[in-house]
């Protein structure tokens, strides 16, 4: 079965983003495919390359990046949400004259059309909010 995930929550508030990553691990472990994880609103903060976690906490960026690396899952962040939250790739950093990109290389800046595509291309779209 093909899954896509929609992550709406900040990884720094509540457990939804972490729960989504655990869900993604479990989905792949059960033999399913994840087509795309789409991050919207504060969910885009999961891509924060410069975020530093406490020593006894797993970095949300690392958790997602490992998923992408191990299973070839696309991590797409909504460009409008990303820019509002200061999450810029190299192209956007150049365009808006910022010193450097702020998102991890595992994530790609994308548009809402990719969320629609994820819904159309997957058997399941599972949303994590709150």
């Amino acid at each position: 079965m093909i899954y896509s995930l929609l992550v709406l929550s900040s990884p720094f508030s509540g457990h939804s983003s972490r729960r989504a990553a655990q869900f993604a691990h479990c989905v792949t472990a059960r033999g399913h495919t994840i087509h795309r994880v789409f991050f919207l609103d504060a969910g885009t903060l999961a891509s924060a390359a410069n975020s530093v976690s406490a020593q006894d906490e797993e970095s949300p960026v690392t958790g997602w990046a490992e998923l992408a690396d191990q299973h070839g899952i696309e991590l797409a962040i909504c460009i409008t949400s990303a820019l509002k939250h200061g999450m810029l790739d190299q192209v956007e950093a150049d365009r808006h004259e910022r010193a450097s990109p702020t998102i991890d290389a595992a994530f790609t800046v994308s548009g809402l059309g990719q969320l629609v595509d994820a819904y159309a291309s997957s058997d399941r779209l599972i949303t994590f909010g709150g």
């Binding site: 709406l8 929550s9 058997d123």
Partner: peptide, 19 residues
């Protein structure tokens, strides 16, 4: 557990997230 949640998503074609 999480596997139980995945199993439910296999059974149910649609999810409504309330938050």
């Amino acid at each position: 557990d999480m596997e139980g949640l995945v199993t439910l998503t296999e059974t149910f074609p649609r999810q409504q997230a309330w938050y």
